[in-house]
Design a protein around this nucleic acid. Structure first.
Lengths: 256, 256
DNA sequence: CAACATCTGTACGCTATCACACATAAGGCG
DNA sequence: CGCCTTATGTGTGATAGCGTACAGATGTTG
């Protein structure tokens, strides 16, 4: 039971009924993910599905000329590797570690077997995938209509929600790659935030000093995504629809 | 069997084994969709799931200030309403008819029941959803990195692939809403294409006169999406993985 | 400590797109 | 036909972000 609690550090797994989780327990493996590491290259088969704990994974869409854009971010509220149970096996996108930390992983085939039991795990993974759809859609519209300033706020808040503290390790260069803009653009926007006293920046180490201030500057895209995650994965109906079991699971997602 | 053939006008349904389709046949209903009609407003429950035949549906992400961006387009190769079987019931996005025509629809609850049989229909819908994920991701990166010119080409080709002929009924104003740019920007780009002899434009009626020419100007985003749809929904492995039946279905998707 | 690599800040001209304004044209309808 | 609505074309100035170049600052390593 002790070990179950450990798996539940990933909030998605934490939503599963304990007996379900217990069955899978022996198949999970804890791994350490390092900054910049790639979990999945474009078009390549993943062996495992990853459930982050305190790490953050960025899903990037990379183009032929090397330009890229982050299409979604995954932390302890989610899972990396949806294409495995969706049936496509591969995706054209890339998954890289945006913040070092730990994750649990399980063999793709094992998760797939579990998925096709059509139980709580399937429900959960499908709902999570829908949340991912929303995040991607909102990212697309944000790319189109919002300034780099706003997008940086969104990005910072999304990352912060997936981290234990208020510090992130990330150079402006890397943020620029995520947002699909120039490094100088990030420097400028980050400068504004720093002058406003919302963050302090120091050679790849960001400390958020005024989170409410960030929230005041961010575009609606952040809120829309957050609320949809709450609704889909933390709402009272998480396991009510089309399911025949009840769960006295621990209270839901600790996304702040 | 005659009627089965009719349902198979939607290529997704056409990929199902005939006995599966036969079971669902009585529950399908043909409807006519008119330009501009909304199948789904943000956050509202859909009653039906739609399988377009010769109509095209745009999935839009609309923001508070009314600005919008198309995040995906659905025609006879797909289905509108994935959120119903994904478990979320609603999405924050809007689905509007981009090209008038017919579609088959089925009650959401009925499709959901079918989905939870964990048979070919589930496989198919999941694979389609993954294709949708790819389309959305590529749209996001295209929004970020490519010019209006390129995006217009992409949009035209995506629409053309879902239409029987080489004509589309669509004002520049509406295209601008889809792409999330100004109407004048579309006028300018469309003017270039017209001068180059690739399209002819006339008060809301576009005729594509040189499709290869368009393909020569389009960005990679079009091809990436198209190939991923082919791989996921038309590839030789469509029903090979994790499934225990064989199908001598009609040949796959007629996406050109 | 010295040399070096990395990270961040700044500047300048350039281009695509925006916002707004307005002109032209084509079809619908009395 | 004449009027009105709708669709398209054009023009002008503003602006955000790009590409490039370079300078300062801060770690790191020999």
């Amino acid at each position: 039971m002790q070990e179950l609690h450990v798996l539940q550090q990933n909030a998605l797994l934490g939503l599963l009924p304990e007996d379900e989780l217990k069955r899978l327990l022996p198949h999970f493996e804890e791994v350490t993910l390092t900054l910049g590491q790639s979990l999945c290259e474009s078009g390549q088969q993943m062996d495992h599905v990853y459930f982050p704990i305190d790490s953050i994974v960025s899903l990037l869409c990379v183009m032929e000329d090397g330009a890229s854009t982050e299409i979604a971010v995954v932390g302890h509220e989610g899972v990396v590797g949806v294409s495995l149970f969706m049936g496509g096996e591969t995706t054209p996108s890339r998954a890289i570690i945006q913040s070092a930390g730990k994750a649990y992983r399980i063999k793709g085939q094992l998760l797939k077997n579990e998925f096709y039991r059509a139980g709580p795990m399937q429900q959960l993974l499908l709902r999570y995938t829908q949340a991912l759809l929303t995040q991607m859609a909102q990212t697309a519209v944000c790319n189109r209509h919002h300034s780099v300033d706003q997008q940086l706020c969104r990005w910072l808040l999304l990352s912060l929600d997936r981290l234990p503290g208020d510090k992130l390790v990330m150079t402006q260069e890397l943020i620029a790659n995520m947002l699909g803009v120039r490094r100088e653009g990030v420097t400028e926007s980050a400068g504004k935030l720093q002058k406003a006293g919302l963050i302090s920046y120091h050679r790849g180490h960001i400390t958020v000093t005024d989170r409410p201030g960030l929230e005041g500057r961010v575009c609606e895209c952040y809120t829309v995504v957050k609320e949809e995650y709450d609704r889909l994965l933390n709402g009272s109906s998480t396991f009510h629809v089309d399911s025949a079991w009840s769960s006295n699971r621990p209270t839901g997602l600790p996304i702040r």
